[in-house]
């Protein structure tokens, strides 16, 4: 696998105007044909990471580096960013019901995105829209394009959303909890669709809180906790042998599929720290079962093994 790096976040730091840091240190990378799962609890900053890649966070101060196809995105002019959004990178949102404009047909909304980025006539744009919807497995795409979001089922809406995201052939697809609002069978179909997109050569960044979804779809995973990436690596390796105590605890909290059902699932005691009350040292230390005195100094993200990175004192040489 010598796929080139498509997106690279390097020590991304994001803070509110009042100085509260929302993201402290997010470093991750997505290569073409890879799917990176970004996993974390609510409030860990995974959605913020996605939004900052899209440049959709006005009013927040970002520092560090976001490199997309070799260009630095931070500090780019809004006009240039606009050209990238939708065309170079596209985003799929959690709830396709609210993410579509309720008062226009989905076809019109997909046409709009195509025509924003390419000089096409209405008819050409519509032809592409219909083709895309068909490719996403929407039955009778021509009629579906004329329908309004509320007239479609949740699964079809999300397919339409994905069709819209893919309409200009983006190199990077960011999916922010794309299946959370859907029921389980539809969820599986949508995830299969994401896998196909990945196999066709685009980079996918999948934001989720569900380790199962990551195992099903992604090639790599980054675990985010309280605005920091604590562990990163290939999915199979991380799932088989998680290094960071937080990842271990997360994986233990998944109910087993076979064998006797446990009386109670293991939980992680305590709650993630608020952005303005983050510990000085390791952010996970207050909840960690392996906590040691040297956790008072924040550990850096190291690479103890080939391809795997972890921020924990346990692996400091």
């Amino acid at each position: 696998m010598d796929a080139e790096v498509l997106l690279k976040l390097h020590h991304l730091h994001l803070e509110l105007p009042n100085g509260t840091a929302l993201l402290e240190d997010v470093s991750l990378s997505v290569r073409r044909g890879d799917a990176l799962g970004v996993v974390g609890e609510s409030g860990s900053g995974k959605s913020l990471t996605a939004m900052s890649v899209m440049g959709l966070l006005p009013g927040l101060k970002a520092s560090g580096a976001i490199r997309f196809e070799g260009c630095e995105l931070l500090g780019m002019k809004d006009r240039e960013w606009r050209r990238l959004r939708g065309a170079g990178m596209a985003m799929i949102f959690q709830d396709p019901m609210t993410a579509f404009l309720p008062v226009r047909s989905i076809g019109a909304q997909i046409d709009e995105q195509i025509r924003l980025h390419e000089r096409l006539s209405r008819r050409e744009a519509r032809a592409r829209t219909v083709a895309l919807l068909g490719r996403m497995g929407v039955p009778d795409p021509e009629a579906a394009a004329k329908r309004y979001p509320h007239q479609l089922s949740g699964g079809l809406r999300q397919r339409a959303m994905i069709a819209m995201a893919l309409s200009c052939g983006p190199a990077l697809l960011i999916a922010d909890e794309p299946t959370t609002a859907l029921d389980v069978t539809v969820q599986a179909q949508i995830l299969t669709l994401l896998c196909e997109i990945r196999d066709s050569g685009a980079g996918v960044m999948l934001i989720t809180h569900d380790m199962g979804v990551v195992a099903q779809t992604c090639t790599h995973v980054a675990v985010v906790y309280s605005g920091l990436v604590v562990e990163q690596g290939p999915v199979a390796a991380v799932m088989a042998r998680p290094l960071h105590p937080y990842t271990q605890a997360l994986l233990e909290a998944i109910p087993p599929l076979d064998g006797p059902r446990p009386d109670a699932l293991p939980t992680i005691p305590g709650r993630p720290p608020a952005p303005d009350a983050r510990p000085e040292g390791c952010v996970f230390a207050p909840r960690c079962r392996f906590v040691r005195p040297d956790c008072a100094v924040r550990p850096a993200l190291r690479e103890p093994e080939e391809g795997r990175r972890v921020a924990c004192v346990l692996y400091d040489a």
């Binding site: 899209m54 050209r83 596209a90 949102f93 579509f100 404009l101 309720p102 924003l116």
Partner: peptide, 26 residues
């Protein structure tokens, strides 16, 4: 503040379009 406005911006629509076309529509 609606999600659909965020979508419009993610599509690459400029501010004029977002305000007048999407915002007013809602």
């Amino acid at each position: 503040g609606e999600d659909s406005i965020r979508t419009a911006r993610a599509k690459g629509a400029g501010p004029v379009r977002v305000w007048l076309w999407h915002g007013l529509r809602l």
